Amino acid sequence: MIFKEIRYILFLAIILCTAKASAQYNDSTFYHISFAPMGSINKANGNTAYLLNNNLKFNIRKKDISLNFTNTWIYGRQNVGLTNNDYSSFIDFNLYKGPEHFYYWGLLNYNTSYSLKINNQLLSGAGIAYSIIDKPTAYFNVSDGILYDTSDLLLAGNNVTYHTYRNSFRLAIKFNINNVVTVESNTFLQNSLDRGYDYIIRSTNGLSFKLRSWLSISSSLNYNRQNRTGSENLLFTYGMNFEKYF
């Protein structure tokens, strides 16, 4: 499994590095692709634990609209036991129309997670966002909207299918220091509108140091809680981020 991951990493790194990369979006740069293979391995006294966290993003940005596609796969084992086999796929768009600093968003999100006891989950919805700060070096954004959640969960050893509407609140922060150090955070709180105990928390936090225009050293701290199943995870991984603007 680990050697297969290494082959994927090397293959995608070659693809991302074969052309000249731009530092950011501009009048002639509309696309961005990045691949971040990260993980952690601990082996001591005959015990082995490892965690692989792979993130692939593709973004399109035009004047009035952006489209973002993200796939994340987390796989972990401790000795011979499986701890994580979690996959998430996002596709979302932002429509920059209307009052200044406001924009409209919509998303479709599929999840399956061994650690959070999610067999299948599909979230779809829309809302509005406001950028309190929107500069190349600093970004502070809040958003809110309504999601429709249809899920198949593992509860007390049984598969349970249900659906609910959720309020989805997000806080997004990003700082760029001298185009070298980037700190970013995205946190979601998604409460069911008809079940007070049913909420989802997702928090993704990253720190990266740019070595080249296409290469960064990255670390990630992620927290997830699916309160209906009583499951949560806290994941810390580190690795590389390969990216290219074109």
Rank of each mutant, 00 (worst) to 15 (best):
Ile2Trp: 13
Phe3Gln: 13
Phe3Pro: 11
Tyr8Asp: 11
Ala13Glu: 15
Leu16Glu: 09
Thr18Asp: 01
Ala19Pro: 00
Lys20Gly: 15
Lys20Asn: 14
Ser22Asn: 13
Ser22Arg: 06
His32Trp: 08
Phe35Asn: 05
Ala36Val: 06
Ala36Phe: 01
Ile41Gln: 06
Thr48Pro: 00
Asn55Lys: 12
Lys57Gln: 12
Lys57Asp: 14
Phe69Tyr: 09
Asn71Tyr: 03
Trp73Glu: 06
Gly76Asp: 06
Asn79His: 05
Val80Leu: 05
Gly81His: 12
Leu82Asn: 04
Thr83Asn: 09
Asp92Tyr: 14
Pro99Trp: 07
Pro99Thr: 08
Pro99Ser: 05
Phe102Trp: 15
Phe102Thr: 11
Phe102His: 10
Gly106Asn: 05
Gly106Val: 04
Tyr110Lys: 07
Ser113Lys: 02
Leu116Arg: 11
Ile118Pro: 03
Ile128Phe: 09
Ala129His: 03
Pro136Glu: 01
Thr137Gln: 11
Asn141Tyr: 02
Asp144Met: 10
Gly145Val: 05
Gly145Leu: 04
Ile146His: 00
Tyr148Phe: 12
Asp149Ile: 07
Asp149Tyr: 02
Thr150Lys: 15
Asp152Thr: 11
Leu153Tyr: 13
Leu153Phe: 13
Leu154Cys: 01
Asn159Cys: 04
His163Cys: 01
Thr164Pro: 09
Tyr165Asp: 04
Ser168His: 09
Ile177Thr: 07
Thr182Gln: 05
Thr182Tyr: 00
Leu189Ile: 09
Gln190Cys: 03
Asn191His: 08
Arg195Trp: 03
Tyr197Lys: 12
Tyr197Gln: 11
Arg202Ser: 12
Lys210Asp: 09
Arg212Pro: 00
Trp214Cys: 01
Glu232His: 09
Phe236Ser: 07
Lys244Gln: 13
Tyr245Gln: 06
